[in-house]
Design a protein around this nucleic acid. Structure first.
Length: 300
DNA sequence: CCCCAGGCACATT
DNA sequence: AATGTGCATGGG
């Protein structure tokens, strides 16, 4: 199968899969390999086409949904470019798309992301999949489905904590507790998806077990269609200081430069700034700024 | 050996 | 409401 792209700037696979939004995709020569639902995909760009090979049939509409091809990237970037600081950034980053990920996998991914390097996040999620997910083999490629909430909820803490979590059994327990809450439908992603951004964020944060401001905003942006979400991590905070220093007081700026943790109020101040500044596509701006700042400061 | 990484929960002030 | 601390892995 192949999907015709709007133009050459509407998709860059390297940027989209290595910018730190999704964690289990891998590059093999000229293509990217990973899972969508229980299907193993091999993706390749060729001129204006996205070529898709899959371990079993997958509908084109599902791939379009995953890549958010319903978002007109050219129009979104054009709107964001009215901000002159952003225009400079976006001029060097073409074809970075937000993905529409599975909310359950996305939530666990960002639980694992806390205070952790991206390389280690990748590994934790691959450990989880390899140890608890269903194996998929296709030719000489092997991958694993992300384990269901049910499987994780019934796992033993000792086995779960073999997945090399940043905070060991404490974090394994968080993952398992969240799995139980998802199984019980106390957290129903389809319902959260229908809520407004503020309502949805309150709902996610009410769960606890490691879901704070940052984790909630990432899940809302990357899997629950809340494109106005503007997650603030250390990189975004530093980028905002660099780009818009005149907008913040010197105490906050100093705190960010010293790499001290932000209070909930300070988080909200920065996230609200992003939203007010960039509007309903603030999340796209966030991801471009995140990638730009990391590249600039030589993050690995 | 040192450092610190897409934070959060909880105790203390 | 702000600040401090435990969490406890593993790569550079």
């Amino acid at each position: 199968m192949r999907i015709k792209l709007e133009d050459l700037n509407s998709l860059d696979l390297d940027l989209t899969f290595s910018c730190g939004q999704a964690f289990r995709w891998r590059k093999l020569e000229n293509s990217w390999i990973g899972m969508v639902d229980d299907v193993l995909l091999k993706l390749q760009l060729e001129n204006n086409y996205l070529n898709i090979q899959s371990s079993k049939p997958i509908h084109e509409s599902r791939v379009r949904e995953f890549f958010r091809f319903d978002d007109r990237l050219d129009i979104i970037i054009k709107k964001l470019n009215r901000n002159k600081e952003f225009k400079t950034i976006s001029s060097s980053i073409k074809g970075l798309r937000l993905l529409r990920q599975d909310p359950w996998e996305c939530l666990i991914s960002y639980i694992c992301s806390r205070n952790c390097k991206i390389m280690m996040i990748n590994r934790m999620l691959c450990d989880l999949s390899k140890n608890f997910g269903e194996k998929v083999t296709w030719g000489n490629q092997t991958d694993y489905c992300f384990p269901s909430p049910k499987i994780i909820s019934k796992s033993k803490l000792n086995e779960l904590s073999r997945c090399r979590f940043r905070f060991g059994k404490t974090q394994a327990n968080e993952v398992r507790e969240i799995a139980k809450i998802v199984c019980s439908k106390e957290l129903d992603f389809e319902k959260v998806k229908k809520m407004s951004y503020p309502e949805a964020k309150v709902k996610l944060m009410s769960i606890g077990h490691g879901i704070g401001n940052k984790v909630a905003d990432c899940v809302l942006l990357f899997s629950l269609d809340k494109l106005e979400s503007f997650p603030v991590d250390v990189w975004i905070a530093r980028a905002l200081v660099e780009l818009y220093s005149q907008k913040f007081n010197s105490k906050l700026i100093d705190k960010i430069k010293r790499k001290q943790n932000l209070s909930p109020k300070e988080y909200t101040l920065l996230s609200d700034f992003g939203r007010q500044h960039f509007g309903k596509y603030a999340g796209y701006a966030q991801e471009y700024i995140y990638h730009w700042k990391r590249l600039r400061d030589g993050a690995c």
